[in-house]
C-alpha cells in the first residue's frame, strides 16, 4: 500500500514537474521528437534494406548449362555431384524442352521462330537451376559446378548480385550506426536540457534532502519526469511513422523501382517501429534525467 502511495505521488509530482516547467519541458520534448524522427527514418530504411537483401538472396539462382549430347545417366550423375556440394540449398533440372515451351508461351515472336525447330536443331541447353544457402559463398558454388564434367556454362548474374548486396550491407550498417549515435547524442542533449530544469529546482531538492529524503526518493520523480518527456516526445514520430509509411507504401504500390525490391507490409511493421520509438524515447528521457539529477545527490 505504502509503495503504491509513493509511486502514485511520484507520478503526480512528475506530471506537475513537466507542466510547471513547461517551456523547459517543451525544449526536451522537441529534442526527443527531432531525434526520434531521424531514428524512425533510419530504422525503416534499415529494416527495408534487410528485407531487400533477403529477397535478393532468395531470388538468386545459379543456372548451369549442360552439354546437349549428355545421356540421361550422365545427367543423373551431374545431379548427384551438385547435390553433395556444400552450401547448395535446392536444385532443379529443367530440360531444354521445358524451357522452349516456356519461351514459346511467353512470346509470339519466340513461338513463330521456335515452333519449326526439330529437337536436334534446338540450340537451347538443358539446365540445372541451383539455389544456395549462403549468398556470400555463391561464387565458390558456381566454380565447383563449372568443374563438373558435362557442364558447359554457369551463370548467376555475377558481379551485379555481389555489388547489390554490398551496397545494401553498407546502407544497413550506416543506418545502425546512425541510430546508435543519434540515441547517444540525444541522451546527452536531454540530460543537459533536463539539467537546466533541475537546476531551477535545486531548492526543492535541497529541502528534500534536508527532511530526510533518500537519494532514491529524490531521483525517482525526476526519472519519471524523463519517462513522461520521452513518451511525449515520441508521439509525433509515431504518428509520422504510421501515416507516413502507409502513404509511402501505397504511393509506390509496395515496391521500390522494380518488383524485385519489395517494401515491407505496413501492418504490423509500423506498430513494431512505433513501439521501438516509444521505447527509445522513454529510455533516453529516463537516462537523461538520471544523469542530470545525479549531480545534485551526494552519493
Amino acid at each position: 500500500m505504502k509503495t503504491f502511495r509513493i509511486i502514485g505521488r511520484n507520478f503526480r509530482d512528475a506530471f506537475k514537474g513537466v507542466f510547471r516547467n513547461f517551456s523547459l519541458s517543451l525544449a526536451s520534448i522537441s529534442c526527443i521528437t527531432i531525434t526520434l524522427i531521424v531514428v524512425a527514418v533510419s530504422i525503416i530504411l534499415s529494416y527495408n534494406v534487410d528485407n531487400f537483401t533477403n529477397l535478393v538472396e532468395k531470388d538468386v539462382t545459379i543456372v548451369s548449362f549442360l552439354d546437349n549430347d549428355l545421356s540421361d545417366e550422365k545427367i543423373d550423375e551431374i545431379k548427384d555431384q551438385i547435390s553433395v556440394i556444400n552450401n547448395v540449398d535446392k536444385y532443379e533440372f529443367i530440360s531444354k524442352t521445358d524451357i522452349t515451351k516456356d519461351m514459346m508461351e511467353s512470346s509470339d515472336v519466340f513461338e513463330s521462330i521456335m515452333k519449326n525447330w526439330s529437337d536436334e536443331e534446338n540450340p537451347i541447353q538443358n539446365t540445372f537451376q541451383v539455389k544456395v544457402k549462403n549468398i556470400e559463398d555463391i561464387d565458390n558454388v558456381a566454380k565447383e559446378i563449372k568443374q563438373i564434367d558435362g557442364v558447359t556454362l554457369v551463370k548467376y548474374g555475377e558481379g551485379m548480385v555481389e555489388q547489390l548486396i554490398s551496397v545494401f550491407d553498407i546502407v544497413h550498417k550506416v543506418c545502425v550506426i546512425s541510430v546508435i549515435a543519434l540515441v547517444l547524442v540525444t541522451a546527452f542533449l536531454i540530460s543537459n536540457t533536463i539539467k537546466i530544469t533541475i537546476n531551477s529546482r535545486q531548492r526543492e531538492i535541497s529541502i528534500m534532502r534536508l527532511i530526510g529524503a533518500s537519494n532514491l526518493n529524490i531521483r525517482i520523480p525526476f526519472i519519471i519526469e524523463g519517462l513522461i518527456l520521452g513518451a511525449l516526445g515520441a508521439i509525433i514520430p509515431i504518428i509520422g511513422t504510421i501515416y507516413g509509411y502507409n502513404a509511402l507504401y501505397h504511393n509506390f504500390n509496395g515496391q521500390l523501382f522494380s518488383p524485385f525490391i519489395k517494401l515491407i507490409q505496413p501492418t504490423p511493421f509500423v506498430y513494431t517501429i512505433s513501439l521501438i520509438l516509444l521505447g527509445i524515447g522513454i529510455l533516453v528521457g529516463m537516462f537523461g534525467s538520471w544523469r542530470a539529477v545525479r549531480k545534485h545527490l551526494k552519493i
Binding site: R20, R203, E204, S206, I207, R209, L210, I211, G212, A213, S214, N215, N217, K298, I299
Partner: peptide, 24 residues
Amino acid sequence: RNGKVYKIRRKIGVVFQDFKLLPK
C-alpha cells in the same frame, strides 16, 4: 555514508534563518 544520511535526517528537524520553503 552519504547514501545513508537520510536515515539520521528523518530523526532530526532543521530550521534555517531563510526558512527554505517551497514558494509555489
